[in-house]
Design a protein around this nucleic acid. Structure first.
Length: 779
DNA sequence: TTAGGTTTCG
């Protein structure tokens, strides 16, 4: 049995130790020496709480004092116990007991220690064949004052607003900015990290280490770090963190709901439930207080003259000249521009030749310069990288008239420019890997001519615009999705006919209203047929401000179906914010699946939460439940979309009605379903436009009432998505090119229906376009 | 010692 509890009789253990073991004094203990038949004996003077390491191994640390040599310079040593042995020891050990250990490994500490502690530590585990003997209490004269109560040394963490010049502290922070480790001009790697915490104070830390692995493994803004023993100094009037001897760090994914697994190079670290809680709290704070980084860039989305970060795989590398080095990378998407290929000598090009050939149309050449070269040279082909601060430039070579897009990683580290290697376990890498495996390489090879040297082909001199005009003059820019067998009716015949009827027409779009496309988006209630304007941000702000006056009711916090977090904002007018995370099967979900309810948040805070969580519902407390705000405010926010309810047709129910959805097998959190459960009549976003159509016989006004089918743009997203607005504007410019004579306008083929609208005063016939969509090559 | 956030020689 590896851990034995022996009784002590007259200072001797009742059962003698195995005869081959000889006692070793701490003074003679050295790394690299043979201690196979030796044992160390001492008294337990300190024990730390039993913890688990990152890989789940139990870990227990004690300090042993050589009670017979108290006066010698070195009289104590750290014992690190792993696995089952750690558990066993933690259960039986009391301070003041004699502890004997054999079969240990001696590990030299990286730094010089003080207080008589040995410069090495002992590592023991069952796997290593260690044995531990614990022998009850020694004669109490050695430790007359020894307490039997476990002294659990607790790390104290300093908030960033309480840092003092010249101190060494432990702290937590959310990464607001970072420079991935780079080769400094001295002997070490350097990494610069700016942290923030809920005190809203920033701290920039400059970290050095000769070992790349010993610097924090930060992959993105929003990651959370725990620094131990960081030195605080004043520099340029501001507090600054710098590595001190013994500096250690843990890094965590900052995503709410992600597993709390520390990234670290050190084998031994303390991490307990309390610390897990700290991470979770910081994640929640960061979710509404730290701006998330830009959505990840893909090669398919790059533009000339921008800086961006790219997550990619390395397929080739080559030395170019003294100050530049070439990385050939891909991310599975295709750059829409012709890309610059850096000429390199074949002999310098590293990478699987066949692979490089197959991927030739999807890889891009990134030239890295100066201080990044050394790191780039050391990269392994096939590894996954995040390259920060790539600069795209447009340039044309002398011999070609086509300009190419170039990718540079300039020298220096401004804005965090640099190269980071991501481990395969990184979630972004896993997603990328899956995507790379799904890429169909045959497709990209067929498109070769689009992006490489063959641009002078038969269409090389025809501009997009000319092509556009050609197609406008011939084909219809709209197509029918049904009724193709019907023949056309001219507009005059239609206006002379009685309603209701349906017609196929071929006409030109002379003008349309509104000209400002965002004005075309309305909210429609299919129950009462009413149309209303989409409320603006100020309406929402006003309602939120009003609801913030009601303090969250603590009695409504932490129910069976949601978990609540409350905090008070700083500043002149402190506000109480409560967030209620809806649980499923009594567990919190991943943020992308989570519905949360918020009380007291501002528009900005709510908007930030929608970036991370699936659904956000603004609520306020009543005496006995949470309730929705006024229906002029969205009752639900999902991604960019605000969902509204009809004031006339809705009968809002208390929020507890949602609990039935939370209990479903897999809550879908579909807006329509949420609306139904909450007694809300969901308003639909719709694009409404008036088209003035003409043909040789006359004209008529026809309305478009479009959720998505006509413009192929979801009406719900037009107001919040610039790209979709541009797309719609381009569509309209094709349907009705500005400044063009009637004869030069393109033809539209549409299906329209006439209908009667009567009120007490008059009767009118209206026309609506339906079963029609924009032609494929217009979109 | 190194760097000490705030984009570039190529």
């Amino acid at each position: 049995m590896p851990v034995q509890l022996l009784k002590l009789i007259k200072g001797q253990s009742e059962a003698p130790l195995p005869s081959h073991l000889q006692r070793e004094s701490l003074q003679h203990l050295q790394e690299g020496c043979d201690h196979t038949n030796k044992y160390i004996q001492g008294v337990v003077t300190l024990s730390y709480p039993l913890t688990k390491l990152g890989d789940g191994t139990d870990f227990f640390k004690i300090v042993l004092q050589d009670s017979e040599n108290l006066r010698s310079r070195i009289n104590s040593i750290n014992i690190l116990i792993y696995g089952k042995m750690a558990k066993d020891c933690a259960r039986i050990i009391c301070h003041g007991e004699i502890f004997i250990v054999a079969g240990f490994k001696v590990i030299k500490l990286p730094e010089v220690t003080e207080n008589g502690r040995h410069g090495c530590q002992l590592e023991v585990s069952e796997e290593a064949g260690s044995a531990i003997y614990v022998c009850g209490y020694p004669s109490c004269c050695f430790f007359p004052l020894m307490s039997k109560i476990s002294i659990a040394p607790k790390y104290v963490y300093t908030p960033l607003n309480h840092l003092k010049d010249g101190t060494i502290v432990n702290l937590y922070g959310v990464v607001k900015f970072f420079k991935p480790p780079y080769v400094s001009k001295g002997t070490d790697y350097c990494s610069v990290v700016t942290l923030v915490d809920p005190s809203e104070v920033k701290l920039t830390c400059t970290l050095f280490n000769g070992n790349l692995d010993s610097l924090p493994k930060i992959y993105k803004v929003g990651d959370i770090v725990r620094f131990h023993r960081i030195k605080i100094r004043k520099y340029n009037g501001q507090m600054q963190g710098v590595t001190s001897a013994g500096f250690a760090s843990l890094t965590f994914d900052g995503t709410v709901g992600a597993p709390v697994v520390p990234r670290t190079s050190s084998k031994v670290y303390t991490f307990m439930d309390e610390e897990q809680k700290t991470i979770e709290e910081l994640r929640l704070w960061a979710a509404s207080n730290i701006s998330t980084s830009e959505p990840a860039a893909k090669l398919s989305g790059v533009q000339p003259m921008v800086f961006f970060d790219l997550t990619c795989q390395l397929v080739g590398k080559a030395k170019v000249d003294g100050s530049a080095f070439l990385l050939k990378v891909w991310d599975g998407t295709k750059c829409p521009y012709p890309t610059w290929k850096v000429p390199v000598e074949e002999k310098y090009l590293e990478g699987e030749k066949i692979h490089l050939y197959h991927l030739r149309n999807l890889t891009v050449d990134i030239l890295v310069y100066d201080n990044h070269v050394q790191l780039a040279e050391s990269l392994t082909i096939g590894s996954f990288l995040r390259i920060y601060g790539i600069h795209t430039k447009q340039a044309s070579a002398d011999s070609e008239d086509v300009s190419h897009i170039q990718f540079h990683l300039h020298g220096g580290t401004c804005y965090g420019r640099g190269i980071g290697v991501l481990p395969e376990s990184n979630p972004d890498v896993q997603e990328l890997k899956e995507f790379l495996e799904s890429v169909d390489l045959s497709g990209s090879q067929n498109n070769e001519s689009v992006c490489s040297v063959e641009l002078d082909g038969p269409f090389g001199n025809i501009t997009d615009l000319e092509l556009h005009i050609q197609r406008c003059q011939q084909l219809s820019v709209t197509v029918l999705t049904d009724h193709q067998d019907l023949s056309n009716t001219d507009l005059k015949t239609i206006t002379n006919s009685t309603a209701p009827q349906q017609f196929r027409i071929r006409a030109k779009l002379r003008t349309y209203k509104p000209q400002k496309l965002h004005q075309s988006v309305k909210l429609y209630c299919s129950k009462c047929n009413s149309l209303q304007e989409v409320p603006n941000r100020d309406d929402f702000k006003f309602i939120l401000r009003g609801s913030a006056a009601t303090a969250p009711n603590p009695e409504l916090h932490n129910t069976l179906w949601y978990e609540s977090v409350v905090w008070t904002t700083r500043g002149q007018k402190p506000r109480e914010i409560a967030i209620h995370f809806v649980k499923h099967d009594e567990m919190l979900q991943y943020p992308e699946d989570t519905l949360l309810m918020i009380e007291g948040g501002t528009l900005k805070e709510i908007w930030k939460l929608t970036k991370r969580f699936k659904c956000v519902i603004p609520v306020r407390s009543t005496e006995d439940d949470l309730e929705l705000l006024d229906l002029s405010a969205p009752f639900l926010l999902q991604g960019n979309i605000k969902y509204y309810g009809c004031k006339q047709c809705s009968t809002p129910k208390p929020m507890r009605c949602l609990s039935s959805m939370a209990a479903e097998q897999q809550p879908s959190w579909e807006p329509a379903e949420i609306a139904q459960v909450l007694g809300i009549e969901l308003l639909q976003y719709v694009v409404i436009m008036k088209f003035t159509l003409v043909d040789e016989t006359g004209s008529l006004n026809a309305y478009i009432f479009d959720y998505e089918r006509f413009f192929q743009v979801p009406a719900s997203e037009v107001l919040t998505n610039k790209f979709l607005q541009e797309k719609m504007q381009m569509t309209m410019n094709t349907l009705c090119p500005p400044g063009r004579k009637l004869g030069d306008l393109p033809w539209l083929e549409c299906f329209i229906r006439s209908y009667n609208v009567r009120d007490s005063m008059k009767h009118r016939v209206y026309y609506q376009i339906f079963d029609t969509t924009i032609a494929e090559d217009v979109v």
